[in-house]
Design a protein around this nucleic acid. Structure first.
Lengths: 192, 192, 192, 192
DNA sequence: AATGAATGAGAGTTCATTCAT
DNA sequence: GATGAATGAACTCTCATTCAT
């Protein structure tokens, strides 16, 4: 059976190749929103709809679910890497914390057991966050004694980050860092 | 064609009233296993199959997905409450940690933002865990100064509990408690 | 994202378990018709629609495309095996030819290169046809000298069986057997 | 932002009018390969990609799927017509057989019931093959007594041509002609 | 005239939920 | 009460076809 559209419905205008970059960005933005609201398991169709594009466009730009997630989180991680060059450890932790409070998806980055949803990428992204942090970590910092402590601490904070509003989540995140005896700078996105 | 109704002997054995309780228990046990293997989103049909009952029985006992999850976690919480009467704080934290490492579902209890999956129940269950802990908490304990610190700490540990095997997860959980400066007893189920 | 129907639309009555056997038969019958009209690649949804059942029912009875095809062709082959016990070689060839002219799907049985569509089953079914034929094949028959000749001949006839109506196809099938110098009995289904 | 139109030098090289013919040929060649590998239902996008052109070009040259298939087969038939002028019946049958073993698409030419895929064109192409053959057919040839026998025989051989490799298929094709009592020359493409 | 992105219908598959028996 | 088949909506992914550039 060859597949061919049976309807005679008028097709909306295509927008042309110019739209390609715009659509890609719209998809990432839409995915970021939907992920934040519903987590990494949100239906792809909802993301396409929110981006205002057809489902095929999503698949053209991102061959699978993981590629889209990677593109979204990639940007988060890039901001963290940028922050690592402009601030100190406390400031970087603040930026990381901001991402944790804003994006349900970003939390998933650290839940590496959910390997089915965000396979190989997640490891890499998590490692990049770790590298950024470790570059600023003084040798005598309480999280520097055991190799795993650093990322375990981040995972712990991510576990504490629950609650209905970003404000709730930020308050709990700050409490978590306090319990760890770690100083955190302002919780905010990277400066532009 | 002239097949007469041979009385009603042809029914599958209903098991009598006793079977109802047995089925309920089997469903909870099956759900616990399936949740542990596939997470809280596992298909309900798989749970019914594993319990050896029809899907209708599942619906009879648990009107919706949340009710089943609550019943499973209810038992975990009951064990924790029991442990609270037989041991000290360190021992109780060990039991809680054991549940965290064993049951992917139990972790969800503390992720109260996933309100869609485990709605109102979760609050109650979480509160019961808190009550059990607080009864054993000395006034000068580091987690006793701020009201929320106690459950935030538990949530933090649950965030650290990732990894492929229970052994991995226990190692990380122990590291998490160490970073919090809290002593934990043996990680094990409640004594029988 | 848990999957749950959002619509409040009234659900048509289920028909109950009694319908199971009826539905299975309806699916096979519908598949036979649809296969005959559109070949083995016909959309499964069309088969479910023609059978008057939901798509899920199709999947319950036949886990994959091949299982359904096997069930359809199984019956054809069974009739051939039955015919092998009630008639001689010419009669059996007539029955086989009848199936070739009636069912586009049955032709596919012999196109074993299309292994993707009808995998392991096809081999078996084809072998059963061969066995039935060979049991009636005299040692001095023109198709008995080389081992492959018998089924090659059947495949050849199937290649000739084209045309808009069964009458067309039967005429061409008869011509094909004549060109092979093989006598064929009446082209008809197995006697009941 | 103040990017001026740098004349129209930024266009992809259109290649001039020469390219049109070149593209058409590339599409036909690509289609031949893709058809051989994946059958007549192969995605058109794969053909355009293999030809190294955009999808629009494909549609410019071939308004629909059938037109492309016809163009591919057209070339096969032309080779057969050429062979008819350089060899005898056995040689021509060898060339035809070569096409049958090489090209899954070419087999379809004779399956005129698949009218959906290769509509009106197929009849014509089939007739041209017949004409080429009949010109070389001696009046006392076994396939000359009945008008349809000639093309039925070709269809029969095409039905026998199955198997994973061209070698398999050639062996079966030779057996088929042997069963028909018809002598075939070497199975090969037309001499250049 | 070529490019290749966008579109959206539709095929395949999975499950939550109902309900006849 | 229990059973498990039926239902059909939702989700993923694939392509034929159009069209802005």
């Amino acid at each position: 059976m060859t597949q061919q559209p049976m309807s005679d419905a008028r097709r909306p205008p295509s927008g042309g190749p110019k739209a390609a970059a715009r659509n890609r960005a719209a998809l990432i933005a839409a995915a970021r929103e939907v992920y934040a609201e519903h987590g990494l398991d949100a239906p792809l169709s909802a993301i396409a709809r929110r981006a205002g594009v057809g489902q095929g466009v999503l698949y053209r730009h991102f061959p699978d679910r993981a590629a889209l997630a990677a593109a979204v989180l990639e940007e988060n991680v890039r901001q963290i890497e940028r922050a690592a060059q402009e601030t100190d450890l406390a400031g970087l932790l603040g930026v990381i914390t901001w991402h944790l409070t804003e994006s349900a998806a970003f939390i998933g980055i650290l839940h590496t057991d959910r390997t089915d949803a965000v396979p190989s990428y997640a490891v890499t992204l998590s490692q990049r966050v770790e590298r950024a942090l470790r570059a600023l970590l003084p040798g005598d910092h309480p999280l520097a004694s055991e190799p795993d402590d650093l990322m375990i601490a981040v995972a712990m904070v991510s576990g504490a980050v629950t609650g209905p509003t970003p404000e709730h989540r930020e308050r709990r995140a700050r409490a978590a860092w306090r319990l760890l005896g770690v100083e955190v700078g302002p919780v905010r996105p990277v400066e532009v």
